[in-house]
Structures are given as C-alpha cells and as structure tokens.
Design a protein around this nucleic acid. Structure first.
Lengths: 204, 204
DNA sequence: CATAAATTTATGCATATGTATAATTAAATC
DNA sequence: GATTTAATTATACATATGCATAAATTTATG
C-alpha cells in the first residue's frame, strides 16, 4: 500500500518512473508493469492517469525534451546584456556539461527516436523540441558573428548554424558514449575551440 | 512453400530481413514472426539458423556495421599514393553520402544502440565497429595535417580527431534526420568547408 | 530410384503484455 | 461520524511472443 498523492504529483512520479525504466531497461523491456514497479505502485494505477501505454510514453518524451530545453535555457537566462560571444560561450558550455552530456541522456534519446518515425504524435513532439532548440541556438550564433562587424548572408548564417549544431551534437554523442575518454572540462574546451575556428569568433 | 537455398544464402536473407524489419517497425515490434514474414518464410525456420532471437539480432548488428565500414573503406581503397588531403576529402565525402547518410541508417543505429548497454555481446560488437572506424579515420586526419609541414603533439592530434569526428557524426545526424533540408551535395560541401576550418587544411 | 540428410513447415506451450473492470481503501465533504 | 468522491489494488482476459518439437518436403547421395 502506498500513501496517496495529489493526482498531479503521482502523475509526475509515473512519468519519471517511465524515464528511469527506459534508461535502465530499454524501450522494448519497458512494460506498464515495470513502470509501475519503478514507481512503487501496482500496474492498474497507470490506467487511472493515462488512457494507454502510448500516452505515458509520449508524456515521458515531452518531459525529457522539456528538461533539456529548460536546462540550457536557464544557463543563458538573464544574460541579455552580456556580449553575444559571451552568451554563445555559456550556451555551448551548458550543452557540453551534465545533465545534457550524460550516458542516460543519449540512451533515452536513442530509445525514443525510433518511435518518432512510426507514431505521428511522437514526430510532432520531436519537431517541437527541435524548433525550440534551434530557435534558441541560431540567434545566438548569428549575433556572435554579427558582433564582429562581419556582414553575412542568410545562406552563410544557415551554414554556420548547421556546422555549429553538428559540432555540438557530435561532441554530445562522443561525450555521452565514452565519458571515460574525457578529462573534466575537456569536452567544453574542445567545443569552444572548434566553435571558434568554425565561426571565426574567439569564444575561449 | 519456398524454394530452398544453400544455408548461407538463406541465413543472409534472414539477417537482411531483420534489418528491414527493424528499420520499418522498430526494435520493439521486431518479433521472430515478423522477421520470418519479411523473409517470406515461416517463423520456425529462424530457429534452424539461429539458436535464439538475440543471436539473429546480433548478426544483424554486425552486418549493419560491416556494411558501413566496407562502404567507406572502399571509397579510399587504392588511393594510397594520392595526397593525404585528397584521401581525407574522399573519405569525408563518402561519409556524407548515401547509404551512410540515409534515414534508415540513423534509425537502425538508434534501434541497436540501447541493446549495447544491456547486452555485453552487443557492447563488444559496437566497440569493435568503433575501433575499426576510428582506426581508419584518425590516420587520415593526422596525415592530412602532417602533410602541411606543421608539427603537432599527440594531444593536438587527438583533439583534431575528436573535433572532425564530432563534426561528421553531427552532420550525419542532421542529414539523416532532415534530408529535405539539404540540397544534393550540400552536406558534402558543408562538411569539407567545416573540416577545412577545423584542421587548417584546404579540402575544398 | 531408394535412402539419407538437409531444409522448411506446422503445431503447441508457457509466459508476458496491454487493456478492462470490479473491489478496496484513503481522503474529502458535509 | 456518515457519506461521497478520488485514488489504488486485485483480478481477469485476449492476444502476442519466444521457444520447442514433430511432421513434412525438398535436395543430395549412392
């Protein structure tokens, strides 16, 4: 028997349990019974908060993307008056640090991705998260370049964004996959060095 | 009823069917019955060639990594006498082209990755593929830099490799995920431009 | 062509899984 | 404190799944 919660707390617990279960066991071993077990309740309860399994999986995906977005958002919150390069630098460092760079992070991402190809609602969630992220990142990049006085075309701006984006994603992959390969702060140093070379802006 | 094959052909068909099934339905919907259906045989046959489901999944993962490796390998085969920058350039282009960059490629990768965290044998397969790839890529990078006459430390060489690796992985992600965002050859152009900036070597 | 070996199908079983619903318990309300 | 409402458990069911094995069919061998 479990002490009762306001529905909202319990719902959150169930979604968190889902993320934990997926990270630890993988999507294909994540059953409603296992989720309930991780949450410390009986499986029937899930049906009370979610109308089916797909719904709680979706809620978990939304929560995962939200967490990442709000973490990197917070990193640059209140820096509106800081120099553009400084804001970009801070943003990149946040993206190269835990909890963004962490084994679970990649593992969860990989577990959810396939669902976004077969389930249109999951595809929407991913698209939304992608737009949120790029909407935050791209202006930072453009501002940092413009701050140098250089004049860049839309085409150039797009290519810069693609390159920096790829760099950060790729380092994220390496950092998540082989954390033991990197000394503390090494990933951040590498990212800032590479981004500086790619943009022609000193972020170090 | 299905015409009979030499065991080797049939085994290959089953492994290919497994990859197709995973790409189309996702790992969690890939059952032995579905694999058999994709291969056009009855499910019992799988047991004849593989002792259990995990074994055919492993065989499929090995085949996937092999295909990618042999494709990029072939691209630079016979270029031993070409300038280092030219070899690196060719290798990067191969990595930015189909079938390496293709929706199925990412989808399969994402479906297999979680298994490498829970199944030690799958982890070994991934490690092996990773070593093969980096063993091919890193010497190319080092050679291209040394060819400029610059003297680089081991530490620098390592950082260059990490950066180029990340760039290629990240562009691979973007290219697989949003193929409609890129004009033909655009990904290759971006990759060569970015790699040139990162290495200080002109690959264009 | 008869026989043996290899390959494929057919069938069955035990368990896991998503979903449904009734019963039970705890909290809220009056 | 009685009664209503909300939350949780318990139970059941139909189906899906991995695995096992016997039967059938095709190919190879002498």
């Amino acid at each position: 028997m479990v002490t009762r919660h306001k529905s909202n707390t319990r719902e959150t617990e169930l979604v968190e349990a889902t993320l934990t279960c997926i990270a630890r066991e993988g999507m294909h071993k994540t059953t409603v019974r296992k989720i309930a077990e991780y949450a410390g309740v009986t499986n029937g309860l899930i049906r009370f908060y979610f109308s089916n399994k797909a719904e709680i999986i979706r809620a978990a995906y939304i929560k995962l993307l939200d967490k990442t977005f709000s973490y990197t958002s917070n990193a640059i919150a209140g820096m509106d008056n800081a120099p553009a390069a400084e804001r970009l630098r801070t943003y990149i460092i946040a993206n190269m640090s835990p909890p963004v760079v962490a084994p679970d992070s990649l593992l969860l991402w990989a577990n959810f991705l396939p669902l976004t190809y077969s389930d249109p609602e999951m595809a929407d969630i991913r698209r939304h998260g992608y737009l949120e992220t790029t909407g935050q990142f791209q202006p930072l990049i453009a501002a940092a370049i413009r701050a140098t006085g250089r004049d860049i075309s839309d085409q150039d701006a797009r290519h810069y964004a693609i390159k920096i984006n790829a760099l950060i994603d790729g380092l994220w992959l390496e950092g998540c996959m082989s954390p033991e390969d990197f000394k503390p702060d090494e990933l951040q140093v590498i990212a800032l060095s590479a981004a500086s070379d790619l943009l022609g802006v000193d972020l170090r």
